[in-house]
Write a protein that binds this DNA or RNA. Structure first.
Lengths: 327, 327
DNA sequence: AGTGTATGTGTAACCGGTTACACATACAAA
DNA sequence: TTTGTATGTGTAACCGGTTACACATACACT
């Protein structure tokens, strides 16, 4: 690999001059510039990003930390983040924490050591204090950490009300909720929305709520529990799409037809939700837009550009498909 | 952030000595070592990875380039790669190329500039020549690039024969193939396996094969084409699971019941294949093991350790579920 | 002519580590 | 006593960039 010294020698100038043409910095004579550019071409020179980072203490890289790479929501988000970051001249380092605090801390350390310029996190273990200590811009996605931290989320409660209300409209009489884990704020917001719709119905009690872990396996178990306890359940609002898919599977195991015997509605709007049979009715988040906005916001913060807004709460939209159609 | 100089001052030694205790290199007196370690603790010192990289020309980082982050096969693979890499002390930079040559080249450049120590790629645009020029160890996963490049794949042809043969056994009379794109070698191998099973049947002609792009959308179209052309089709072997799911959807649109009217079988064994209704019969790849093996292999190559084998061809296993059950 | 400013370029310090090399000491073997 | 080797530590060069600063020249304006 050619270095800046090689280029300088080739072009017959000093390294400072080469650096100046590389960065379009300071004054450089047109002819000199041409010579340097020729040398760069001839040697196929690429500046060394590590050396540059060391001096500038930035890396043109942002970190993206997600709790579960296998939940399609996050790859879809990652793709949007990556697309946008790229357009803005940044690279993305993708980290999967598996909701594991040690892994998260390990990554944080690594990322800092590598001078990442900013961080996008979906985490419920990260505290505001830890974020502060990082000393780089951090934006929270999908989950709220703290009012001081710029955040991109959706209207979970209102989405949950839309979902539950829709089941009610479709004539469901006993609606259960497959909740996400208690330590995740968006799960609790969705649960609250559900409760606001049916919490004061005469039939309701807390045994209509069962916790899952936002994954399919726990969702299947939880659904079987629910149906075992309350065979009269004719509607389930699941805290996310992956769990809704689990619920469909569990319903089948249990001998219930979806949507005839049991209507199921999810939350997220992952593309996989269109892939199931029956296709999943769900509360769709604008995943790609959210990824675009976070990436854009983070880069603005990194570059200390003005931001008009550091809290984005997206609207959410009910997407009616087959898992709730009452025939 | 404290630097090595701060630590040296605190401990009353030179930076060289600090570096020695950091790297357990050369001779250091026990007492000195203790003093240095105390200073490190007191200052909460973390060595700067960028500075280290600059001198050592390595980064303890590997790149993982995949063509489609939204196909669950790759996140599942990524997770395994990450787990293993972590255990071995490496970080993973995850890159999504979208099968786009420019994006791929861009990433390659970036990764090189950052001194990644090695690369795992799933690509059909990367040539052996380009790989050679990178001058770092590269391992190919899921696709073969060249005999000189260490590779981890599965027995595609044999898997395809298993799939097609299974449909035959189940009594299918007209079996179509939803093929992956022609420029991807594993798609062609799978097609060959299919042809070896049914290519010389009296009914067969090439109109029983339709190309998709390994994604759901193209698979739906292709399936509708196939069924429109040959309503007598009673079995489809899809080149991957995502396409098989698309085929199920298309079959429904077309008014065919799966598996009663039409048996469908996929390839990959992504966990999503269990999530559909009916659950997808598929040819399962040992995705996690493959990820473990590639990461392990790459790290061995990076560290110039002996490797007994640079070509891994995993067996593939037919997983019978519901999309092929003949009632 | 004298001064100020824009233009153009090179030298060397710096970023934060690693390590070659020099030097010192202690102790064992010859 | 001499020599060799293991132990222990510091100085400074180096990795490959960026940039502060110094210096030189050209030109416009008093």
């Amino acid at each position: 690999m050619a270095t800046i010294k090689d280029v300088a020698k080739q072009a017959g100038v000093s390294v400072a001059t080469v650096s100046r043409v590389l960065n379009s910095n300071g004054y450089v004579n047109e002819d000199t510039k041409k010579k340097v550019e020729e040398a760069i071409d001839r040697l196929n020179y690429k500046p060394n990003a590590v050396a540059r980072s060391l001096y500038k203490k930035t890396s043109k890289t942002i970190g993206l930390m997600v709790p579960d790479i296998v939940n399609p929501f996050f790859p879809e988000l990652a793709r949007a983040v990556e697309d946008t970051a790229h357009k803005l001249g940044y690279n993305v380092v993708f980290c999967n924490t598996d909701e594991n605090v040690e892994k998260e801390e390990h990554y944080l350390e690594i990322l800092l050591q590598k001078y990442v310029d900013g961080l996008i996190v979906a985490s419920n273990t990260l505290t505001a204090e830890k974020v502060r200590q990082l000393n780089i811009p951090v934006v929270s996605i999908d989950r709220k950490i703290n009012a001081d931290i710029p955040t991109v989320v959706v209207k979970n409660k209102s989405g949950a009300r839309k979902a539950t209300g829709f089941l009610l409209e479709m004539g469901c009489k006993r609606i259960a909720h497959l909740s996400g884990p208690e330590h995740i704020d968006n799960a609790m917001e969705r649960r609250t929305g559900y409760l606001e719709e049916v919490g004061s119905e005469p039939w309701f009690d807390s045994s209509y709520i069962e916790d899952g872990n936002y994954d399919m396996k726990t969702a299947i178990n939880a659904t079987l529990q629910l149906l075992g306890r309350h065979p009269e359940i004719d509607g389930i609002f699941a805290g996310n799409d992956v769990m809704a898919i689990g619920a469909i599977k569990a319903a089948h195991k249990f001998g219930k037809k979806v949507p005839e015997d049991l209507a199921i509605i999810g939350f997220d709007g992952i593309s996989l939700a269109e892939a199931t049979t029956p296709e999943l009715t769900t509360v769709g988040q604008p995943i790609y837009d959210m990824g675009t906005i976070v990436a854009d916001l983070l880069v603005k913060l990194i570059e200390k550009k003005a931001v008009e807004n550091t809290f984005f709460e997206f609207d959410v939209e009910l997407i009616e498909r087959e898992s709730t159609r009452k025939v």
